[in-house]
Design a protein around this nucleic acid. Structure first.
Length: 1008
RNA sequence: GGGCGCUUAGCUCAGUUGGCUAGAGCAUCUCGUUUACACCGAGAGGGUCGGGGGUUCGAAUCCCUCAGCGCCCACCA
């Protein structure tokens, strides 16, 4: 490219797509195409799969940036690097979206039926899946697309079924009762996060069950008392001590039942009477108390939100609110109410329809987390429970969590983990691979009407004829009503329709024979396919999304052609990717899903493979707005990453995510910040523009002439060397922000503001400039991949930067720069007697000493230049006005002289410069002291101002040296502080004193 | 109620195992088009490191305590 073709400003919009395409076409995202050393180390990350139908938001942008940074860095370090992308089916979110769409057509999912509905969902997923993938590309994500997976693809689904069956056979999965959040209107369970809370006033009734009952209890839901089986009090509550353990028989008009007095720490002594009526079937906490105390659980409210027959004849069929009125009436009539209070209450309501939630017991699938098991060939599970193993691998640091404090959170959560409910009443997802034998007889039992009745209604002779009927109509695969996979309740509804169509039943019959979902009794088979083709019905529920994503790190690495393998073990054994890339190196994700996902992966993977899923967990913070608020659509404070990319470029967005953020801490995002980093990207662009524009096209690869380096050359090369070392160290230790900041600082401050300016004065620096630029591009590439790759091309390199060796940062003979350092060290440290121990201690601190030595050289020149500029500004010298300067440099005379060209030309506006060892104080000049070097700027006369300046500086110095003097005269300090610190202080003190002396002399001469 | 975190310049944040006169960017003010860049350069002002106590030769950093803010979990009979 010739000079004129490089635009003045970097335009990411014109570069990014093409660069990404080039990367993708190069195949380098795929580790199989990397040219790696024989024993290349593994580095792999499983991308947390975004929702297949999602749209890129800043949360995605954040994890994509963090992971891409690590991936690019490690790829450049010549590791066998895999970043495996994928998408998640996100059952709830996706299903809800499609439900909304069909609602616009005036339909519900029931109108379509499961099969058709799922077709709609899959269609929707297919159509919207590309959005998120293309947006992922725009972030510059260098993930291996050919290995991309989807949580519902056939391989992953097989893995889910296999693991489910394996756990079932190991008795780690069981079916049991549990209270669920039930919305009577939607006729569906709700996950905890789908339950919303509304604060409201409620009446708190104080009453006794009957006259003989000794304890008054308080409740806001009197109707549930029909299902009470205990009264709980706090074990410390003295009022009730004597009753604990006793059993009373009561009658609320719905028959007699027993009430046991139990104690539980959960009971608040100060609320109500301190005694709580326990309704196991209709309250979460009460359920747990009932489990602990082995109480009977009486279900008195049905799925329709109405009282059932357990509530007694008087109440059956009433809505909850009607029943409440009625029972309060009953209490009043019998004089059992003591008082009624107004209290604040937070009511649980359905997020979709605001209907109050009815907690109900229901049959669900669970993973047993406390059951100890032994698995052959699994080093973790030797008489250990899932929970114990999951705790263990973090405790013994097989898995490291960054930042470490989240380990505590993890332990706390894991220790309190209850059995994990994995079934969800949704259609979209992995249908639970459990099959129930549903001979028609049992089905009839299930639907609450007897065989006789049904046969009669259908006009059938006997059981055999019914079987025939069912098989023909319902089990026939060609019929519209498919059998397998149907929800039993729906199936029942289909029976009803057939019966109704035949005129066998009417609406009142249907009303009388409503079924209860939970009463289905059947034989169970767990596995991929039922033993026979007909007569088995698959559990209609689907698995919790976290069950499948819990397998993510390894299920994505299993061979895709899973059909080839008969057994799971065989499949695992023959999947080379799994061997190569698992356990993954880092799991990078937001701390908000530490529990949901990270913990689940640990449970599932240690169990299935006997391996941890990842070695490190890096948790990034949430992205918030400038005020620290969560970004959300409803608040309208969201920043659209795509919009930002279009405006400022991906690189700028990436930097604004990385720099200024630390693991586990939230970051605030706002446009000005992105703008700032856009400026940096542009700076980098212009640095390269300047270098390439001035590059003589001859001899591109000429070596740096190390024997003829100027002071500034040495300084910049040493700083670069330090930068490489520190940035590498930072990146290895997950200090991304710091690495990025250092690279930015070096580029902008050292390289652009100083060294490029120097190169305009000293000239002929093509080799060094291009050398530094290349190293800088390598260093910056993981942070800002697009601009660096583009510049890399512009400076005429043939290979892609993406696979450039990170180690080549260290090429070149920088050790030759260290010549002369020993002399400097001697100057610094030999002035005082130092014993051998101290010398040894100092040797350990070589890095620090090396830094000191560079400071001592070039930074003096920088300080001189800065002070001259400063003085010019202070005394308001017109920029065009040239001035004359005299420097008394003492024993540094030759050294300063050698750098006179810099002192004169780095925007100091000096046309005449005289450098002497020493001399008389010059009266009509501004006086500046840098270390022990005196500078006079002649011709600037403002005595009053100079006097003030000198006085202020002397006063400041005085304060400064007094502090150090106090330190040095403290014997304890001398005795206890490390020798290097003491030496530093001593040096600081001496320099300070010397300077003060000089300033005072000048002040004196000024006043004379 | 239990747990975790934060509080450093007007704003956003750095500040590794305690050791430079506590730093940067943005904003503010002053000056400026010089062989890349005004998405720029030079310079300046601005902080009792939330308060109090302790440990230490030495504390923004470690411990205790108080205050304010935020998050997570549980509960709301």
């Amino acid at each position: 490219m010739t000079k004129k073709e490089i635009p003045k400003a970097y335009h990411p919009q014109e570069v990014e797509d093409a660069v990404y395409k080039k990367w993708e076409e190069s195949g380098k995202f795929n580790p199989d195409n990397l040219e790696l050393p024989e024993n290349a180390e593994r580095f792999s990350i499983s991308m947390p799969p975004p929702n297949a139908t999602g749209v890129l938001h800043l949360g995605h942008a954040s994890f994509l940036t963090h992971q891409d940074l690590m991936i690019r860095y490690n790829r450049m370090k010549q590791k066998n690097t895999l970043w495996l992308p994928g998408t998640d089916h996100a059952s709830i979110a996706t299903q809800t979206k499609v439900e909304k769409i069909i609602a616009k057509e005036g339909k519900t999912k029931y109108d379509l039926g499961r099969k058709k509905f799922l077709e709609r969902v899959n269609e929707y997923v297919e159509n919207s899946q590309n959005t998120i993938k293309n947006q992922t590309r725009r972030m510059g994500s260098s993930c291996n697309w050919s290995r991309e997976r989807y949580t519902l693809d056939s391989g992953l689904s097989r893995a889910v079924k296999e693991v489910f069956a394996k756990m079932y056979n190991d008795e780690l999965i069981y079916r049991g009762d549990r209270i669920v959040n039930w919305c009577p209107r939607c006729e569906s369970t709700l996950a905890d996060d789908e339950v919303e809370h509304k604060d409201q006033k409620a009446k708190l009734y104080y009453f006794k069950y009957d006259k003989n009952f000794p304890i008054t209890i308080a409740t806001t839901r009197p109707e549930t008392k029909l299902g009470d089986t205990a009264v709980a009090v706090n074990p410390k509550d003295e009022r009730y001590q004597k009753y604990i353990g006793k059993v009373y028989e009561i009658n609320l008009g719905n028959g007699k039942h027993k009430i046991k007095i139990i104690s539980d720490r959960e009971v608040e002594m100060n609320f109500g009477t301190g005694a709580l009526g326990v309704t196991p079937a209709h309250s979460m906490t009460d359920w747990e108390m009932a489990e602990k105390n082995d109480l009977e659980k009486i279900k008195i409210i049905g799925e329709d939100g109405k009282m059932n027959n357990n509530a007694g004849k008087d109440y059956e069929g009433l809505t909850v609110l009607e029943a409440r009125e009625k029972i309060v009436e009953y209490f009043e009539k019998n004089n059992l109410i003591e008082k009624v209070e107004e209290v604040d209450q937070s009511l649980s309501i359905c997020y979709r329809c605001d209907t109050p939630i009815e907690p109900l017991p229901s049959k669900q699938w669970f993973v047993a987390v406390d059951k100890k098991i032994t698995i052959k060939g699994n080093k973790y599970f030797q008489n250990k429970s899932l929970k114990e193993v999951a705790l263990g691998v973090v405790k013994n640091k097989e898995i490291k969590i960054i930042p470490e404090r989240f380990e505590k959170t993890y332990f706390n959560w894991m220790e309190n983990l209850h059995d994990w409910c994995i079934s969800r009443q949704l259609w979209f997802g992995h249908q639970i691979p459990a099959w129930f034998k549903t001979k028609v007889g049992s089905e009839m039992e299930a639907v609450h009407f007897s065989e006789d009745v049904l046969l009669k209604k259908l006009g059938l002779k006997d059981r055999a004829e019914f079987d025939n009927f069912s098989n023909n109509i319902l089990f026939n695969e060609d019929s519209d009503i498919s059998w397998a996979g149907e929800d039993p309740v729906e199936l029942y509804q289909k029976y009803i329709i057939i019966l109704k169509d035949k005129g066998l039943i009417d609406n009142s019959w249907i009303e009388e024979n409503r079924i209860e979902r939970q009463t289905i009794k059947s034989e169970c088979f767990v596995g991929e396919n039922p033993p026979e083709k007909i007569g088995w019905i698959q559990d209609p529920d689907t698995l919790d999304t976290w069950f499948s994503s819990g397998l993510w790190t390894f299920s994505t690495l299993l061979n895709q052609d899973h059909e080839k393998y008969k057994t799971f073990e065989d499949w695992v054994e023959n999947s080379p990717d799994l061997k190569k890339f698992h356990p993954t190196s880092v799991m990078e994700t937001g701390y908000d899903i530490l529990f949901f996902w990270v913990a689940r992966m640990i449970l599932m993977t240690t169990y299935t493979l006997g391996e941890v899923p990842f070695e490190n967990v890096y948790l990034h913070g949430m992205v918030r707005d400038k005020q620290g608020k969560k970004m959300s659509k409803s608040l309208g404070n969201g920043i659209d990453p795509i919009e930002m990319i279009e405006k400022y470029g991906t690189d700028a967005l990436r930097l604004s995510i990385i720099i200024g953020s630390s693991p586990g801490n939230d970051i605030k995002m706002y446009e000005e910040k992105i703008e700032g980093y856009r400026n940096f990207v542009n700076k980098l662009w212009n640095v390269s523009r300047y270098i390439t524009m001035n590059q003589e096209s001859r001899n591109k690869n000429q070596e740096i002439d190390y024997d003829n380096l100027t002071l500034a050359d040495k300084w910049i090369l040493e700083n670069l060397n330090n930068l490489i070392k520190e940035a590498t160290d930072d990146l290895d230790n997950y200090r991304f922000s710091q690495a990025g900041e250092k690279i930015k600082e070096f580029t902008w401050n050292d390289f652009a503001d100083w060294y490029l300016e120097i190169s305009k004065i000293e000239k002929d620096k093509d080799e060094i400039l291009i050398y530094i630029l290349k190293r800088l591009l390598i260093l910056a590439h993981p942070f800002v991949p697009f601009v660096t790759e583009e510049i890399w091309k512009n400076i005429g390199t043939e290979n892609l930067l993406i696979t450039e060796k990170w180690s080549s940062c260290r090429d070149g003979d920088l050790s030759r720069l260290s010549r002369g350092k020993d002399a400097i060290n001697r100057r610094l440290y030999d002035t005082n007697a130092i014993n051998q121990d101290a010398r040894d201690a100092m040797n350990l601190d070589r890095d620090a000493m090396n830094r000191v030595s560079t400071e001592n050289d070039f930074e003096i020149i920088q300080d001189i230049v800065k002070s001259i500029r400063n003085a010019r500004a202070e005394y308001k010298i017109e920029p065009s006005q040239k001035i004359e300067a005299v420097i008394y440099a003492g024993n540094k005379k030759e050294f300063i002289k050698s750098q006179a060209h810099l002192i004169k030309n780095l925007r100091t506006g000096i046309d005449k410069l005289e450098i002497k060892e020493k001399g008389e104080k010059i009266k009509d000049a501004v006086y500046v002291v840098v270390n022990d070097i005196e500078i006079y700027l002649i011709g600037i006369i403002d005595k009053e101002k100079e006097r003030k300046n000198l006085e202020k500086e002397i006063a400041d110095l005085e304060k400064y040296t007094t502090g150090i003097r106090a330190k040095l005269s403290n014997d304890d300090f001398i005795a206890n502080a490390p020798i290097t610190i003491v030496e530093k202080e001593r040096k600081k003190f001496m320099e300070g004193e010397e300077k003060a002396e000089k300033l005072e002399e000048k002040l004196k001469s000024l006043l004379n």
